[in-house]
Computed example of a mutant assay.
Amino acid sequence: MTAQVITVTSGKGGVGKTTAVANLATALAADGKKVVCIDGDIGLRNLDVIMGLENRIVYDIVDVIEGRCKLKQAMIRDKHHPDMYLIPAAQTRDKNAVSPSDMVRICNDLRPDTDFIIIDSPAGIERGFRNAIAAADRVLVVTNPEVSAVRDADRVVGILEAEEKSNPALILNRLNPTLVRNNDMLSAEDVLDLLGIQLIGIVPEDESVIIGSNRGAPVVTDAKSRAGQAFRNIAKRIQGEAVPFMDLEQQGGIWGAIQKLTGRK
């Protein structure tokens, strides 16, 4: 067992990185994988809330780095999946409390006993972002189909290439097919053309995502949610399975074009 380290990042805040981390980790754990989530957003942690673990925090990642606890003491076991853990961010420190080499060391310590390590990157491209990508074997870039979010994602893709973090993959979040059809939102094909990276998943707009996040219950556990199904599909693709993209329109149109574009049709 040697873990694959996956960093989930974006550039722009508020596009759904943390929600994606919680849902992908939960889906991987439901598939029988041992998963450790690391909240890399020092000073502004939220992953614990979305995972429903905020009341269980005793130690955080900075406590590990500064020697106040052992790594295993900072790992909070999930309530529903005994092989899923969270290492929370420090709430009262800034991003300079962690260095890229610290993150590499922690991930290397976790690798032998874990299938997946998923790092929640803070928004932006400063120190916290560089910490989050330092140990990454793979980077998933999350964006909404908004011009400003896509522009920031494009900047992140350029930095990843410069840092030799090759082959990032795209999660397009909160796509609304009705707005796309009315030319009021960028289509998935538009975003793919602009970013020029591999597509690993499209998550439709779904109010159950917010409800689940507020309750500390990731939407991936809701069998009726389209967004939950999309996250489950992404988790399968992370594991190497060839899962077709959902037809959110229930007809041809852009989805046929996207599947052709990604070689799945």
Rank of each mutant, 00 (worst) to 15 (best):
V147W: 12
A149V: 10
S208H: 09
A227T: 07
L160D: 04
S10G: 02
E207P: 13
E161S: 13
R181Q: 15
A74G: 04
R45T: 04
N144W: 00
I238P: 03
A235L: 08
L170C: 11
P177F: 05
N96V: 14
V98C: 07
N23G: 00
T26N: 02
F245I: 11
D115S: 08
R138A: 02
V49Q: 07
V98R: 06
Q251D: 13
A149Q: 07
R130T: 12
K224P: 08
F116P: 01
L110F: 03
D247A: 09
G124M: 02
V35L: 02
S166G: 13
L175D: 00
E126N: 13
V62E: 10
I42D: 04
A162R: 13
P145S: 06
N55F: 06
V98G: 05
I258Q: 11
D222Y: 13
A134I: 06
G252V: 05
N233Y: 12
D60L: 05
I117P: 00
M51K: 01
A20Q: 03
F231Q: 02
V21T: 05
G228H: 08
N183D: 15
Q4F: 07
R264T: 13
P88G: 11
A217C: 13
G263Q: 05
D222A: 09
S99T: 15
R155V: 10
A242R: 15
P122I: 10
D120F: 03
L28I: 00
K33V: 06
E189R: 12
T221W: 09
D60Q: 06
L199K: 00
I210L: 15
Q198D: 15
L53C: 05
S101E: 15
T9V: 10
L261R: 15
V36T: 12
R174N: 08
N173E: 04
V49E: 01
T143Y: 10
D120S: 03
L192T: 06
P88H: 11
I159A: 08
D115R: 03
E207W: 12
A97S: 14
K12A: 06
I258N: 10
A22P: 00
G256P: 00
A123Q: 06
F129I: 10
L28V: 00
T18L: 11
L110R: 06
E66Y: 14
K236H: 15
G11M: 08
V209R: 05
A30E: 12
K34S: 12
V49C: 03
V142S: 02
N182T: 14
K70V: 13
L261G: 06
N182Y: 09
K33Y: 13
T143I: 09
D102T: 04
T114A: 09
Q251L: 12
N233R: 15
E163G: 03
S99L: 11
A74M: 02
P145R: 09
M103L: 14
G52C: 09
V180D: 08
A257S: 11
K260E: 14
H81I: 08
V58E: 14
A217K: 15
R56P: 00
G228V: 11
R174D: 01
S208G: 06
G124D: 01
V150W: 11
V21G: 01
A136Y: 02
Q73P: 07
P122W: 09
G196L: 04
